[in-house]
Design a protein around this nucleic acid. Sequence first.
DNA 1: CGTATAAAAGATTTTAATGTCTTTTATATG
DNA 2: CATATAAAAGACATTAAAATCTTTTATACG
Lengths: 146, 146
Amino acid sequence: MFFTKSFGYAVRGILYVGLMSNEKKRVQIDEIAEKLAVPKHFLGKIMNKIVKEHILDSTKGPYGGFSLNKDTLSIPLIKVLEVTDGLEQFSMCALGLRKCNPEHPCPVHHEMEPLRSNLKRALTNATINDLVAGNKPELIRNISAF
Amino acid sequence: MFFTKSFGYAVRGILYVGLMSNEKKRVQIDEIAEKLAVPKHFLGKIMNKIVKEHILDSTKGPYGGFSLNKDTLSIPLIKVLEVTDGLEQFSMCALGLRKCNPEHPCPVHHEMEPLRSNLKRALTNATINDLVAGNKPELIRNISAF
DNA sequence: CGTATAAAAGATTTTAATGTCTTTTATATG
DNA sequence: CATATAAAAGACATTAAAATCTTTTATACG
């Protein structure tokens, strides 16, 4: 619920790179896609966006792949969401009305507003590092699809 | 955010019927679609589902249209959501992992769980009547698209 | 019964997210 | 420079939600 598949793929891909960064400098898309059981080329496009936004680094060619950069671990999840899904959802009416606002609220506006801002805050406060910091063998298990 | 357009159309359609039920017994799909600026035939299919689930009544032919029934006003919003979008979203992992659960949580499980249950509770507690009960002229304005 | 009305149902199209396959670009190394 | 590797880019296919158009079914009323 809430997010696209792309967002889930992105978060899991970034986490996988983070978890592997002790063992090897760079991780290839083939390995990520296989371990997470995610479509390789689709993940590739998403990872490409992630690199363009400086959330990860990548290099082509032999010994290339994806790697953490100095900022990766402090990136908040909402930044990843922005890249994959955009943030319009936080300002868009739950019933799809354009002119919904506090002065002219839709019928569910007042119910939805606190939920929306709680979600936004949770995603703003949680960083990649927060997710990587836990039990690593457990986490590897938990980002794979099986 | 959160929901499909179908859900928004359904809620607004039901509310429009509720608001008109003082003035006339039945409301036609042409009027609803026009006033809410929603595609008529698409709304028709959604309203049909709503009728099949006994959230509204409908009759064909002259003087036909959609009308409230004895249960309409006490229907919780989550029932409407179930009809239009289904409720799988409440049990589905935010990152799309099948085996995500409290014992093997995905990396955002503990952040998302309270938000999810808050949303579910809000939709379970809010009835159609709660939304109709407010200022009616204001509400009519607020469910139209303009 | 015949006719007009309005929902229901069916068929088709459009759009966006997702997924697959192929070609291009960059780079490390002999 | 030649070759192999791996990301990036491009073209195309699939799927589900959304939207449109046409035909069928039910019903009120003269």
